[in-house]
Amino acid sequence: MFGIFKPRTFFNLANNSIFWLKIIFVFTLVVGLVFALVLSPIDYLQKDTVRIMYVHVPSSWIALFIFLIIGVSSFISLIFKIKVFSIYAKSLAPIGLVFSLISIVTGSLWGYPTWGTFWSWDGRLTSMLVLVLSYVLYVSLWLLIKNYNLAEKITNVVGIVGLINIPIIKFSVVWWNTLHQPASITLTAAPTIHSSMLAPLLIMFFCFCILSLIIFLIRYKYEIINFRVNKK
């Protein structure tokens, strides 16, 4: 069952699947954008501004999800000494960094016409900024520390410690009074987004997931070759 995690199997799988993933990505991007920008209705309150959601929300989800994977991979790498998990985490980090930045920037552009401000230090916005800084720290430590084993250990610790922030971001809108509204889509209740707006949101999320997967596979191939070459 765990055979897929063997570096060689995974490498071949990556090589064979990238082409098809690219085709799926282009297809879902076109369909998603047409739905998000043209076919989906305007919001009763926010009018066209609501369309920022179709980029903002998927980016935020992916930024959170990738850090979750980095944290879990760091744990497996640090405790069970399965080195390839550090390489998964290392390959994913820049993707998460970019998506967290997209989330902050689009959120800010959305905040101005709706709330009346680009930025405010409420629980959700502050904890999301902490996530961006965790990503910056994680990525820069890999770049700055030249000794591979040392860099691996330190980034593993950063990944595990940064994991604490994930539930804080998720529940910040529940625990505290925030300017940011609570989640519209939860596991426990029906979504409070009308289906005509939920559909493009989910397509865009799927599209961003595929894009992340493609970049991850390319970066993983590079990192694994890099790892092998440096070991010799």
């Binding site: 709706t114 509204q181 409070t192 009308h194």
Partner: peptide
Amino acid sequence: SSILAKHDENYMPPEISN
């Protein structure tokens, strides 16, 4: 000295809202 508008987590087209 300043006012911010909050909005809720409900999103829907104008027709549904009406």
